[in-house]
Each structure stands twice: as C-alpha cells, then as structure tokens.
Simulated scan of single mutants.
Amino acid sequence: MSVIYQDLHQFSTYIPPINLTFHQYLLLTNEPILFHTGNVQQATEMVPKLKSILGDNNLNYIFVSHFEADECGGLSYLLEHFPQAIPICPEVTARQLTGFGLVQEFISKKPGEKLTTESYDLEFFSYPSEMHLWEGLLVLEKRRGIFFSSDLMIRFGEANNAILESNWETEIDDISKEQVPDQERRIKLQQTLKQLNPNFVATGHGPCLKV
C-alpha cells in the first residue's frame, strides 16, 4: 500500500509464477472511490488497509472496468464490508454482475458519459477488452489527469510503487492485437485515446506511467 500520485493510493500484489503485479487504486477524497477489487484473496488482504485509510469515512464507489477476476472477483467481499459502496461499470458488466448475483445496486455507464462530483470528474471511454471483446470502460479523472488503463498498458515484473517516464502517444501506438484483437476497434480506440492528454497512467499491471 502506498500513495502513488497526489491523493491516489495503490494496493499491489505480485504473483511470481506468472511474473505479474496486480494493482487496485483508492482515490482518497471526500467521496472515496476504489478502482477494481482484485480477486477474493487480494480483496481480503486489501480490506483492512482500506478501513485503516478511510477511518470513519465511507467508500462511495467501486469502479469495475470489465468482468474478470482481478477487476471484480472480490466485489461481493468488499460490499460485505462497505455495503454503502455503489459499483460503477459498463452495461455488459452490469448484466454479468447481476446474473451471478453479485450486486443489487449499480451505476451503469456508457462510453462518452461522465460522473462529476465535488471531488472528481470522471469521463468514460469504450474499452473492447480482450475477454471475448466484451465492452468495457476506461476512465480519465480529468481534474488530476489520471488515466485508469485497466489491462491496456501492461508490463510484466514486480512493480509495487513503481513509476516509469513514458510518452502517451507511444503507449497508445503499442496497444497490441493481443489486448484488442479486433483491428477496427483497436484503431478506433487508439484514435480516441490520442485525443486525451493525461499526466499519469494508473495501470492494472506493471509500473504506473508519467506521461
């Protein structure tokens, strides 16, 4: 657990057999929001840390970019401890979460929509994630310039509290067919993201990026 950028806390788990680090993030404001839950084991380890950081504050939202174990596998466990938290997710993911009985209440977002509060300004973008090309969401927190990239910008290795200097356009150009197999949708995604100008990329795996 560490403060990785401004008021953004990072929780990390390194898995040696696959040489990959998994991250979740807490934007600690007056309306705290968690980005991804990790799997059940990761969520179990994270909850005491979240409670310590939050103190008497509630967790307002939990953002889920797409339906996969490290994005939402620990959601039910987290909601047991933070029952007031409302998941924010794509429409497809909302149907999956309710179909598995994981949530009762959620906020469903489409690409191009926003969520503005006193503490942050989130804008959502289409993410044709590699899991069966299910429609996911990427999100930019516009006041701080933090882009939450989910699995899109991935590097292997141990990366707890690690930050790399990089170039935004290079990162976008390096999005591979393994990440977005449909070429047309990959090109459209790259064109959309190149219009953005973030300061910091909070990755799902590997070092975060200063861009």
Rank of each mutant, 00 (worst) to 15 (best):
E113V: 09
E105T: 15
W134G: 08
L79C: 04
L115P: 02
L140S: 02
R144I: 09
S108Q: 11
L152Q: 02
S126H: 12
S65G: 15
P48Y: 09
Q24P: 01
F125Q: 01
Y120N: 06
S65I: 01
L133G: 03
W134I: 13
I107M: 14
L102C: 04
G38I: 13
S150A: 15
S126Q: 09
V40A: 10
G99T: 05
S129K: 04
T98Y: 02
S76H: 07
E130Y: 15
H81M: 03
L26Y: 02
D56L: 06
T93V: 12
F67S: 06
E31A: 10
E91F: 12
Q96Y: 14
E105G: 01
C89G: 04
E118Y: 01
L28P: 01
L97I: 06
Y77M: 08
V139I: 11
G136N: 09
T21N: 05
Y25L: 08
T116Y: 09
F125I: 11
Y61D: 01
L152C: 12
T116C: 02
Y61N: 07
G112F: 05
P90L: 06
L34D: 01
F35A: 03
R144F: 04
E141L: 12
S129G: 01
P48T: 10
R95A: 11
L27M: 12
T37S: 11
F67C: 10
H36C: 09
M46L: 13
N39D: 15
T98H: 02
F100A: 09
M153K: 05
I88G: 05
L137D: 04
A85C: 13
P87F: 02
D70L: 12
V47Q: 03
E123R: 15
F156D: 01
Q96R: 14
Q24F: 00
H66T: 14
F67V: 04
T117S: 15
S52M: 06
S76P: 03
E68K: 11
N30G: 15
Y127T: 06
E105P: 00
D151L: 11
L140Q: 10
T116G: 00
L138M: 11
L138A: 10
L78E: 03
E31C: 09
G112S: 09
L140G: 05
I107G: 02
L50A: 07
G99H: 10
G145D: 02
Q104L: 04
L137N: 03
Y127V: 04
F148A: 05
M131V: 14
D56P: 03
K51A: 08
S76F: 02
V64C: 14
F67D: 06
R143I: 07
